[in-house]
């Protein structure tokens, strides 16, 4: 992966029961995935909030992955289905804002699917390379920006 632009930033919100464990397993198996991916562990993709994704993009992330359990395997029954709908809403918001909807994508990856996790990250990176960096970034690198926090409710 010599051509990888390490400046691209991909935030992966990973469910602790599946995709996060898959990423862990990939590490254990010495499978390499692009260093551009920053993993955020969440207890279930059902916890995925539209605002998390918006904050990631506003802070300069080039793409957001949401990786949850296989359909039917959610530890909380249907958290992953809720996540699918929220990802769709974020796509709508991105289009309104003027960003490409492809910058966010939902994946279903079980804890044993280390190679699929790697493939997903590589696919996401290819997507970003095709559409270019997030134009909201000030410089080449993503930067944290002060944003309002999530409401407590």
């Amino acid at each position: 992966m010599s051509s990888v632009n390490v400046d691209y930033q991909i935030v992966a919100f990973c469910c602790q029961y599946c995709a996060y464990a898959a990423a862990d397993l990939a590490g254990g198996l010495r499978l390499q995935y692009p260093p551009n991916v920053k993993i955020v562990q969440i207890p279930c993709t059902g916890k995925m909030d539209v605002l998390y994704a918006l904050q990631a993009f506003e802070s300069g992330a080039d793409a957001v992955m949401v990786a949850g359990c296989m359909p039917g395997d959610c530890h909380f029954l249907e958290g992953n289905f809720n996540a699918v709908r929220r990802v769709e809403r974020v796509k709508d918001l991105l289009r309104q804002i003027g960003l490409e909807a492809e910058r966010i994508r939902m994946f279903h990856i079980s804890s044993s699917m280390a190679s699929q996790f790697v493939a997903a990250t590589e696919e996401m990176l290819r997507t970003v390379e095709a559409i270019g960096p997030n134009p909201l970034r000030v410089s080449g690198k993503a930067h944290p920006q002060e944003t309002c926090g999530l409401p407590s409710g």
């Binding site: 909030d49 539209v50 605002l51 918006l54 904050q55 993009f57 506003e58 918001l93 309104q96 804002i97 003027g98 960003l99 134009p135 909201l136 944003t147 309002c148 999530l150 409401p151 409710g153």
Partner: peptide, 28 residues
């Protein structure tokens, strides 16, 4: 129009205005 929607709308407007070349200060 609750707190969550206010935050989403404010973030969306900040990003959209920035992309539009006229960054607005949008708080909620």
């Amino acid at each position: 129009g609750g707190a969550r929607e206010a935050a989403i709308l404010a973030a969306s407007l900040r990003m959209a205005s920035k992309l539009n070349g006229d960054p607005k200060e949008v708080t909620d």
